[in-house]
């Protein structure tokens, strides 16, 4: 067993930075569809924050902070996306047809609500789930 490296700076910075990254990734996620952003990029950025946590600490710490089963997360994301696409079947529309409309919401004002967001939530979860599963699989044996 090697001596534990002194990575105080990395750990301190990570605790702050990772939340900023996650917040920004959520911003990117909601920016999607009409402007650059979306589930894929948001998910990738969130998982980058998680990987940063993983680098600064280790797998055990990450698992205690985020006790998720990332495989389940992938499955749940896939299910949400597929069902959103399949929702169009109920209205006898072609698969993946989306619906959207503008609503007056309190505080937010005129807002566009789009079923593509549901699809993107699925994508977001799948991306985080898959990336973290890959990283964990590679990292576990060390």
């Amino acid at each position: 067993m090697k001596n534990k490296p002194n990575d105080l700076i990395l750990q301190t910075v990570t605790t702050m930075i990772s939340f900023i990254i996650i917040l920004f990734s959520i911003h990117l996620f909601f920016a999607g569809h009409y402007t650059p952003g979306g589930g894929f990029i948001g998910g990738l950025m969130t998982s980058a924050a998680l990987v940063l946590l993983l680098l600064a600490y280790d797998i055990k710490t990450l698992n205690t902070i985020l006790p998720f089963n990332f495989r389940m997360m992938t499955a749940a994301g896939l299910l949400i996306s597929v069902l959103t696409g399949a929702g169009a079947l109920l209205f006898n529309q072609p698969f993946l047809t989306h619906a959207y409309d503008y609503f007056e919401l309190p505080l937010l004002g005129k807002t566009s609500l789009h079923t593509a967001v549901l699809f993107d939530i699925g994508v977001y979860l799948v991306v985080i789930g898959v990336t973290m599963t890959i990283i964990q699989t590679i990292g576990e044996s060390e």
């Binding site: 896939l78 299910l79 597929v82 399949a86 169009a88 006898n92 072609p94």
Partner: peptide, 24 residues
């Protein structure tokens, strides 16, 4: 049912996703 050509793709996809929830 205009989505008929899709069903042979969608049904296995959905069951694959469902299967991922109960691996054991």
């Amino acid at each position: 049912m205009i989505n008929l050509p899709l069903l042979p793709i969608l049904i296995p996809l959905l069951s694959a996703v469902l299967l991922m929830f109960f691996p054991k």
